[in-house]
């Protein structure tokens, strides 16, 4: 193996192991500068024959201007929407939020079971517990932010044990 080939090989190795995480970190850092922090991103594992599921997470806006989550997408989903659910007279009503979700300056919102969630439809594969899947959240000011979601059978459960646990957003 000559030196050039060796260099290329090492470069390829370097990019494989460090390049990709660095790329997603970079995208997140852009938003981090604007004070956006995303935590505990979880997707509900899919039961057999259920081609839809919900995504949940915490979004903190430490910045000084309002941020709006406008859209979401993922490779494993043919169609993704931002939804809200309201329990009205015992009836669970779900509807898409066309204007997305506002996160006020200095504010925090939680997408959680029974309320706001990202609705992944037309799933191309079953999502199994403990799998990690990347989705893209689009914010009006930050643009596209890649977020790594952990698949769990009962999302939102780690939250009840306190905010110190279940920090699932890792790179």
């Amino acid at each position: 193996m000559d030196r050039k080939a060796g260099f290329l090989f090492l470069s390829a190795l370097y990019i494989t192991f460090f390049g990709l995480p660095a790329a997603s970190l970079a995208a997140e850092n852009i938003c981090h500068q604007q004070g956006l922090e995303i935590r505990q991103a979880e997707i509900r594992a899919t039961p057999p024959n259920a081609p839809v599921t919900g995504g949940y997470l915490h979004i903190h806006n430490h910045g000084t201007s309002m941020q709006r989550l406008t859209a979401a997408s993922a490779d494993f989903s043919g169609h993704t929407e931002i939804h809200q659910m309201i329990l009205e007279a015992g009836v669970m009503k779900m509807s898409p939020l066309k204007d997305g979700i506002e996160i006020a300056a200095g504010g925090h919102i939680q997408l959680k079971p029974g309320g706001l969630h990202i609705m992944f439809m037309q799933l191309k594969q079953p999502l199994a517990p403990s799998d990690m899947h990347q989705a893209t959240l689009t914010f009006d000011k930050c643009g596209d932010v890649p977020v790594l979601f952990k698949v769990t059978k009962t999302p939102g459960q780690s939250d009840s044990a306190g905010h110190s646990t279940g920090h699932t957003h890792q790179h």
Binding site: H79, G90, V91, M92, K93, M121, Q122
Partner: peptide, 20 residues
């Protein structure tokens, strides 16, 4: 029980329903 189809798209539909 109350139930009603909504959010009807080419990818399907959702059903609002009594969750009791």
């Amino acid at each position: 029980i109350f139930w009603e189809k909504n959010n009807i798209t080419e990818s399907g539909y959702n059903i609002d329903h009594t969750a009791t």
